[in-house]
Amino acid sequence: MEMDMKMRMNTNAGVNVSMSMNMNMDTNVDVNMNISDDLFLPLDESEKDSEFIAIESRSFIADAARRFSRNKLAMAGFIVLSAVVLLAIFGPVFSHYTFDGQDPSSRNSGSSLAHWFGTDKFGRDIFVRLLYGARISLMVGFVSAGINMAVGIAYGGISGYLGGKADMLMMRVVDIIYAIPSLLYVILIMLALGSNIRSILIGICISSWVSMARIVRSEILKLKTLEFSTAAFVIGASKARILFRHLLINALGPIIVTLTFMIPQAIFTEAFLSFVGVGISAPFASWGTLVQDARAFIDIYPMQVVYPVLAICVTIFSLNFIGDGLSDALNPKSRR
């Protein structure tokens, strides 16, 4: 009667014997002759682990970092951006050129060992000016993103958490700010406060925090209906505690993602402003002013335009890849 029997060994789970038996057999057949009788003694309680958890413990951030590191494009972006940041910080230190050091003897020279990216019309080293420009551009990007984050989280968080009339009022203010073209503010502020980094930062931040506030508010609105927020209320947590310790910490993913997309936006705005001539003024350099300076000679020395444009592109690309990677890493469910 072993005719109908099928036996199969599964290699990965030890001896995993499975068989199907003809149903009209009424006796129990022993196929496992190799199993000795003493195996039929009761299993000791200590040998059972019925609350066993198979997966290893990892915090949210560690888990996200692991997912991020597996994303090739995002990692490439991260490496390139790190290189840009490091070059911007340390590059000028190791160079004997300065951003305003003129050398009338070699003006508009092409790439050489002495001047990697050549020189401009005043004989200033373009590579070093590019690095100084990176300092300003990146600083504008990071600082404005930081300010936006702080203001946006506070405003959006409070608005979303309070809800009702307060939320209505606070969101209408946001709508009004949103309705006026942001370049208008920036240019007005530049005219009023002068062309420097501080006024560029104020100009960018005064309007762009609202998108962060909106994101945070919608996240908080969603999160505050979840039971863990009620649970926090029931155990007696204060409003501030619920908002900051429970809700915002769960909105971290979308906040970080929004943040990484705000940085390139700010860099772009700064470059644009400098290009149209209301940004950083000479002799300081930002990537925007470098393009602007070289624009007049675009026919003769096109490379002088290409370098700063490439710098802007590479940085913005990297930041966007990082942003995409972070949004995948922080919201694993949103993929596909």
Binding site: E227, T230, I249
Partner: peptide, 29 residues
């Protein structure tokens, strides 16, 4: 007076460890 919730997936803050979750009421009070 306390409450036990229906959804065991939504009623625990996903960013907290089990220790933090159980300790929090003691911290608050």
């Amino acid at each position: 007076m306390q409450m036990i919730f229906q959804d065991p997936y939504a009623s625990l803050n996903p960013r907290y460890t089990v220790g933090d979750i159980i300790e929090e009421p003691m911290v608050i009070h």
